[in-house]
Amino acid sequence: MSPADATRPSLLIAIRDVGNQSAWSEFVVLYTPLVFRHCMRRGLQEADAADVAQEVMKSVAGSIARFEYDRRKGSFRSWLLTVTRNKLANFFTRRARRGDETGETSVQELVGSEASPSESADWEREYESRVLSWAMEQVKAEFQEGTWRAFWGTAVEERAVAEVAAELGMSAGAVYIARSRVIARIRRRVAEVDLDDPMVQAAFGAG
């Protein structure tokens, strides 16, 4: 790991510094599509899903600034799911409202209280896959075209190393190395934003 990576402040800590606009943008780009996709899976229209996702991100921003993210209540990803479910419940309540007011509090409390196992599992998958695909988008520009294509052909498309090497005019050894380089870089990028990392958690331990 290069020294620059080691000193890079974690994303979650960075966005707590409310003046850190670039950290915030990174956070938005990383997580908004995840929340959006989750809303779509719950049957929302694109416009509604975007609205709910926007509400979730605002709520997260507010809570993080107030140090409310508490690791004892679970991982960041499960917290994000809870916020998302609450906002979804609000959305459905608004939609289902037919004029009377009773019961809204209990919707929020109870819907917010627990995700079903299958929903949590879906969320885990969506979360992992969003972070990975974000990391891929992020690091792609750092590599030369040939290196990236060597990675893509062998790791993603799972074609034979020899075949990809021949196509790109590289040695098989160079293809192996290219693939390892890209994957290692993706993994480092993921680790940088891993909000459930023990170090990040420790930073929030007091909150």
């Binding site: 966005i15 409310v18 003046g19 606009q21 915030w24 943008s25 938005v28 780009v29 908004t32 599509p33 959006f36 694109e46 416009a47 899903a49 975007a50 609205d51 996702a53 926007q54 991100m57 605002k58 709520s59 921003a61 507010g62 993080i64 600034a65 107030r66």
Partner: peptide, 18 residues
Amino acid sequence: PLAAAMDALCRTPPSSMT
């Protein structure tokens, strides 16, 4: 809609949301 939402979020500083 998602792109628009993200754009709007990025342009709003998180401090204004607290």
